[in-house]
């Protein structure tokens, strides 16, 4: 699948470049010949049925999953088995998970300052100031000294976003950030993501929130069976899908 869709990139600077990337789980071919170029400042939404490989794709970008063939370059660093490169990429790429994955034995503030202090070697005071800044941005500074178990799901996910932001990442990956949330809490997390997008963060989101895709995405990618089936700007993608598989998917998810 070549990267032929019309480009609506915000800048010419390439943030992520994926070329002919393939991945297998045992003998199962999960990702097939993925080609994708993400430009700095782009907001990309990846949609598709479950099992289509969308989560696996973004997990390959920060090496939580290993790819077996092809090339991934993140922010100018080639992703290989070299641990130094992997750690460098991971500290530049923030990730938000479906199940938040906050550290339950640490307070909210400690969750946010841990990586800056240990990975970036930021002084504790400075790290705490940064953390409070981002906690204010996700609108929960008053919970800083509580433990994750005391917060609601939506609050936990916003903390997870703040935790990633504390590392000052150039790129943010979202792996179904609202799928484990009650409907009432989805909005507060999406609002946080929208404001992040408005500030020009490079974002790749795997999500089923099509409203979010229409509102903030520059590009929507549709995946099925480990391949990119269609990609386009949101208006075109939703109003005028080209492939039959996309039409079927959209009719199922927007049909009620």
């Amino acid at each position: 699948m070549a990267d032929t869709a019309p480009q609506m990139h915000v800048s010419d600077e390439v943030a992520i470049s994926i070329q002919r990337m393939n991945k297998w789980y045992g003998t199962f071919h999960v990702l097939r010949d993925i080609d994708l170029t993400v430009y700095a400042g782009e907001r990309i939404v990846i949609a598709g049925p479950s099992g289509s490989g969308k989560s696996t794709l973004i997990r390959c970008i920060n090496a939580l999953e290993e790819h077996q063939k092809g090339k991934i370059v993140v922010d100018g660093t080639l992703l290989s088995s070299d641990l130094k490169n992997i750690d460098k990429i991971r500290s530049e790429v923030g990730m938000v998970f479906q199940h938040f994955n906050l550290f339950p034995h640490l307070t909210i503030l400690e969750n946010c300052t841990l990586a800056p202090i240990w990975v970036r070697k930021t002084p504790k005071r400075e790290a705490e100031e940064t953390a409070m800044h981002f906690l204010e941005k996700v609108k929960i500074p008053d919970q800083a000294n509580k433990y994750p178990g005391q917060l609601s799901g939506g609050q936990q996910q916003r903390v997870a976003i703040a935790r990633s932001l504390c590392m000052m990442p150039r790129i943010m990956l979202f792996d179904e950030p609202t799928s484990a949330l009650d409907p009432e809490m989805i909005k507060e997390v999406l609002d946080t993501m929208v404001s992040l997008a408005e500030e020009g963060m490079t974002m790749i989101c795997v999500t089923h929130e099509m409203g979010f895709a229409r509102q903030v995405a520059n590009r929507v990618i549709f995946m099925d069976q480990g391949q990119i089936v269609e990609q386009n700007e949101p208006e075109e993608f939703f109003n005028n899908p080209k492939s039959e598989r996309t039409k079927l998917f959209l009719s199922q998810i927007l049909g009620h």
Binding site: D87, S91, H99, F103, A115
Partner: peptide, 15 residues
């Protein structure tokens, strides 16, 4: 421990 704890630690760049 859930796998997510390892993944979150890794994704933040901790060795």
């Amino acid at each position: 421990l859930p796998r997510g704890q390892y993944e979150a630690a890794n994704s933040l760049g901790l060795d």
